[in-house]
Nucleic acid binder design. Structure first.
Lengths: 333, 333
DNA sequence: AGTGATACTGTAAACGTTTCCAGCTGCCGA
DNA sequence: TCGGCAGCTGGAAACGTTTACAGTATCACT
């Protein structure tokens, strides 16, 4: 089942067989047909390892994610795979959980297996880059903080999305708008908070520190956050949660506390997970096309691999859109 | 950055370097240390392709899924990756969309890249197996119809789960229990229908053909199914939808039609997707631990690869559990 | 001192490809 | 008739590993 067998069966040399099976080089039409037929008959398929040894291309890209849990990651993967497959590439997936050695190990283990990687990791530093990657190794960063790393990087419009949401709430007349924040040290969380503050400033509203509640993206944090806000001397009339999970948690906490949403308190989330449209009342959120993010990352990486683009440092932002549903109390929804 | 460089830097031959870096063979402790140090200093990591060429092991397994959409697949992947990573293996993911050539192409493209594959595909036949896989190639099948294919196979307890659900509904006093079916030709769908019928028979209830509504696992099918059931001269008092998506669709349709759930009509679903607990009323469903399915598949495949188990044909069934929530109207929930 | 065993190290072949280079036809023009 | 050239084909090197085998010390023992 090697190319030798095919060559022998077709009565040619391996060189000719190779040429006939790839498009390369010149082979007589008849010979090509014979070889093709033999390959077909023997169910030959080339050994990728051997091929990559000589061509130094694996036609595989690595996808390194912090975790594999939840639909965010599955959507990213879907977007990447879709794009990559149509370019004739494959996807080697790996998750590098928390903890230092793991990420480096995962990165190293990919050496010789992949032509480049799409990397999403908060802990990826320049130091690590230098240590575990060959210089000039193609990398596309996903949702990472700005840095001087020499890799193109993709982020979603956290700032703009959050600002649009809070602007929307302010536009509905809310003056006291609370924020349930994302995880500490998380880049997305920081950006969304920045958007929140910017919108408040634009609307001429004061920054009230007691209205910024810490959170960690979990539903439980949403519950706790909403409860804390209800304890305030002057409760907010609107809550912007930094993601949908916390927004849904807040929704439950408010319902339990006997508050009506959106009549008493309006709620807005972020991410627009599928569940957002199913909760009661349906959740106003900021839509993010995650699979498009993956697809775009793959496109950038492939461009790098095919040498169609210089390894630049450019940062690309994917737009978000505000999706108005019932939880914010906007009139026509 | 090849092993030659390491050998040269350490002042030994490549053979010794290789032996020092792997555990194999006998090397003087001092030499080993020198080589290790050199490798560390040069950031050497072995070329997987070259290694796999000689050892004929890639330490990678393929995962071939019909699609990458939705949390079912992401959970399967997560389970597989988790298990596989702890065994020192990697995951090459690929989705073989609808259409014949695609699956075969994907399977072939994995030749020389993976040591075995976890395969989930309705269209995988013996014929295809013979054509696109080397004889004896390790394969574990996921959720496929029984067949005489010489591969171990894993399924979830569709029949038992559906039967438990319908039995539960019958136990609540329902006499007219409808079924919104899964996709035509789908193995899971057929099994769930079989469970439905078995439970009816057990409960001494007649099979009413008009109560079996076709569906396709989509939310829209749930909506349409519920509407059709309401049109009946004698509407059912309970509906079992073959998956949660359709159950949620039915929920909406009933709500729109002014029926109360569960007071007027009870509803049960299948899969226990995360959303099930968030809809109003929360959805009674059959829980399936999907990541465990993936993990188990990976375990079986690894056992095959390590030669710890014969390539048997055994069929393994993963249990499901009934999760009672509010949509079925059970008293204590 | 010679012998054999032991402990380590090096040489070289092999894995399955691709590709450079050279060789072999047959044909055309001189 | 012969040189040259195109068109095609084959031999062999190369990619980076692992590993069978052979080689070289060192050392204990007779």
């Amino acid at each position: 089942m090697t190319i030798r067998d095919v060559a022998r069966a077709a009565g040619v040399s391996v060189a000719t067989a190779s040429r006939a099976l790839n498009q390369s080089g010149l082979v007589a039409a008849g010979t090509r047909a014979t070889v093709r037929a033999a390959a077909e008959r023997l169910h030959y398929s080339p050994h990728a390892g051997a091929r990559s040894l000589i061509t130094s291309r694996t036609h595989t890209i690595g996808v390194l994610l912090p975790d594999l849990y939840g639909e965010f990651f599955s959507e990213v993967i879907r977007g990447i795979d879709q794009r990559v497959q149509q370019g004739g590439y494959h996807c080697l997936i790996s998750s590098a959980r928390h903890g230092g050695p793991s990420l480096e190990a995962a990165l190293r283990a990919m050496r010789g297996r992949v032509d480049g990687v799409v990397l999403m990791s908060p802990e990826f530093t320049g130091e690590l880059s230098r240590r575990s990657l060959p210089a000039g190794f193609p990398v596309v960063l996903l949702n990472s903080a700005p840095s001087q790393l020499p890799h193109p990087s993709l982020i979603i419009a956290n700032f703009e999305g959050a600002r649009a949401m809070v602007r929307h709430l302010a536009g509905l007349g809310h003056r006291r708008i609370a924020l349930i924040r994302g995880a500490e040290g998380n880049f997305d969380a920081a950006e969304r908070r920045r958007g929140y503050r910017a919108a408040l400033a634009e609307a001429g509203l004061p920054l009230a520190p007691e209205l910024e509640i810490p959170g960690d993206f979990s539903e439980a944090a949403g519950v706790a956050g909403a409860r804390a806000l209800l304890e305030l001397p002057e409760a907010p009339t609107a809550i912007f949660a930094a993601n949908d999970g916390m927004a849904i948690g807040a929704l439950f906490a408010l319902r339990d506390a006997g508050r009506r949403v959106p009549e008493d308190i309006a709620i807005g989330g972020f991410d627009d997970i599928p569940m957002a449209r199913y909760v009661e009342p349906s959740l106003t959120s900021v839509h993010v096309d995650i699979s498009a993010l993956g697809e775009r990352a793959a496109t950038r990486l492939l461009a790098l691999l095919e040498g169609r683009s210089e390894p630049d440092v450019s940062r690309e932002t994917l737009p978000t859109t505000l999706v108005v549903r019932r939880s914010c109390g906007a009139p026509n929804s």
